[in-house]
Simulated assay, not measured.
Amino acid sequence: MDSGEVLAAHHPHGRQRPASLIKVLLALVVLDELDPEQIVVPTQRDADQECSCADLEAGSPYSVRDLLLATMVKSGNDAAHALAGALGGVDEALRKMNALAHELGATDTRAASPSGLDGPGMVTSAYDQALLFTHAMTNPQFAEAAGVQRMMFPGGRGEPPHPLVNNDRLLDEYPGILGGKTGFTSASRHTYVGAAERDGRRIAVVLLRAEQRPVQVSDQARSLFDYGFRLAAEGVPAVGRVTTAPPQPQAPVRTGEARADGGGTAEAADARPAGSGGSSAVGWIVALVILVSVGVGVGIALSRDERV
């Protein structure tokens, strides 16, 4: 996470649904724009969001800090929706989220809901999730929230606080874990992004469209962390880089015209997605010691029935 090197990757720019990983992007906008002590009063629509939920009480006051923690710890869709309202409403929150993603270079990502519940056009990639999470972890408030295993959330209308427990099993089980975010919907399947530190190295792992087989996804993630640390210790050459610098636009080239860099015709160049094989892939698969992996049977949800 400090060098930007991608140690291993599979289909890093493949378009997948993020589920609750999109809450990382929401958190970045919230931390940029809202005072942690600002009070938000959720609407009934906020409270009625499809769960997982923090059990907000419509009409009761909550601080932005508590709502953000509930969004990260419990993956509360109700808390995420309330934060979107504080940002100017869902449409405005999505506009800000998508603008920030593009500004940071996460051009595979489009948020269609602030919580990660599936919506038309909702999409991300492993590359983008590595980029966004690594950038988010540079913010001390986000890094703290991402590592919280348990919190007491204020009760509504004078009720006592109630506990919210993080579904990320690695927070309790993996030595050196720094934090993470889990997700699940029926369309996205299991998703995960997290970071850990060992011997002075910090590595991030991303998993999209995963299943709880052949072993539980938490065990798959644990194995990938171990694999990444082993690759880093052995000095294995990077296969690319992650960077928050957006790709530079290229001058248009007429179909069939040879490229100035000798890379073939424009047709061939345009047909090859960013991050595909060849030296041009390294051109802008370019941030941190990161292990990125996506694939069938490789993933994490660390929750048994989390909706996003």
Results as ranks from 00 to 15, higher is better:
residue 275 G to M: 02
residue 305 D to Y: 13
residue 181 K to Q: 11
residue 149 Q to I: 02
residue 7 L to N: 04
residue 61 P to F: 12
residue 280 S to M: 03
residue 72 M to W: 07
residue 180 G to Y: 04
residue 127 Y to V: 05
residue 60 S to I: 07
residue 189 R to V: 00
residue 167 N to C: 10
residue 195 A to D: 02
residue 297 G to V: 05
residue 303 S to L: 06
residue 176 G to A: 03
residue 98 N to I: 01
residue 224 L to T: 09
residue 49 Q to E: 15
residue 283 G to P: 07
residue 113 S to L: 06
residue 162 H to E: 10
residue 183 G to Y: 10
residue 158 G to D: 05
residue 211 E to S: 12
residue 130 A to P: 00
residue 224 L to D: 04
residue 231 L to H: 01
residue 286 V to H: 12
residue 177 I to M: 14
residue 175 P to D: 11
residue 129 Q to R: 01
residue 64 V to M: 08
residue 92 E to M: 01
residue 106 A to H: 04
residue 170 L to P: 00
residue 302 L to C: 11
residue 108 D to Y: 03
residue 231 L to G: 05
residue 109 T to Y: 02
residue 308 V to H: 10
residue 125 S to H: 01
residue 104 L to Q: 12
residue 13 H to L: 08
residue 3 S to M: 07
residue 194 G to Q: 08
residue 241 R to K: 10
residue 255 T to G: 10
residue 77 N to S: 09
residue 170 L to F: 01
residue 173 E to W: 09
residue 202 R to G: 00
residue 238 A to Q: 03
residue 26 L to T: 09
residue 13 H to Q: 09
residue 126 A to I: 00
residue 64 V to Y: 08
residue 31 L to G: 04
residue 247 P to G: 11
residue 268 A to W: 09
residue 41 V to E: 08
residue 24 V to Y: 02
residue 12 P to M: 07
residue 111 A to C: 12
residue 296 V to A: 09
residue 56 L to V: 06
residue 55 D to M: 12
residue 162 H to R: 15
residue 86 A to P: 11
residue 191 T to F: 01
residue 285 I to R: 09
residue 114 P to K: 01
residue 196 A to N: 02
residue 223 S to N: 06
residue 257 E to H: 13
residue 232 A to G: 02
residue 102 H to T: 13
residue 178 L to F: 07
residue 173 E to D: 14
residue 58 A to K: 06
residue 197 E to A: 12
residue 206 V to A: 07
residue 271 A to F: 10
residue 21 L to G: 02
residue 189 R to Q: 12
residue 103 E to R: 15
residue 122 M to E: 15
residue 89 G to R: 10
residue 66 D to A: 14
residue 192 Y to R: 00
residue 89 G to M: 06
residue 230 R to F: 05
residue 234 E to K: 14
residue 252 P to Q: 13
residue 176 G to R: 00
residue 265 T to D: 14
residue 183 G to R: 05
residue 242 V to T: 14
residue 84 A to V: 00
residue 233 A to Y: 03
residue 60 S to Y: 09
residue 233 A to E: 14
residue 113 S to P: 05
residue 144 E to Q: 13
residue 278 G to A: 04
residue 254 R to H: 10
residue 24 V to T: 12
residue 131 L to V: 14
residue 4 G to M: 00
residue 234 E to H: 11
residue 177 I to C: 04
residue 217 V to H: 14
residue 192 Y to Q: 00
residue 113 S to G: 08
residue 102 H to G: 10
residue 43 T to V: 03
residue 282 V to W: 07
residue 70 A to H: 08
residue 33 E to Y: 07
residue 161 P to R: 06
residue 289 V to P: 14
residue 201 R to P: 03
residue 270 D to A: 12
residue 296 V to M: 05
residue 229 F to C: 05
residue 238 A to S: 13
residue 294 V to I: 02
residue 193 V to Y: 00
residue 138 T to V: 02
residue 28 L to Y: 03
residue 238 A to R: 05
residue 22 I to S: 15
residue 194 G to E: 08
residue 175 P to M: 04
residue 132 L to I: 13
residue 45 R to C: 05
residue 66 D to Y: 07
residue 25 L to D: 06
residue 246 P to K: 14
residue 106 A to K: 06
residue 30 V to I: 11
residue 238 A to L: 01
residue 295 G to T: 08
residue 295 G to W: 04
residue 241 R to L: 09
residue 204 A to I: 13
residue 186 S to Q: 13
residue 16 Q to S: 05
residue 280 S to K: 04
residue 55 D to P: 00
residue 271 A to V: 06
residue 208 L to F: 06
residue 44 Q to T: 10
residue 169 R to Q: 15
residue 9 A to I: 05
residue 123 V to E: 15
residue 138 T to P: 01
residue 29 V to F: 07
residue 215 V to T: 12
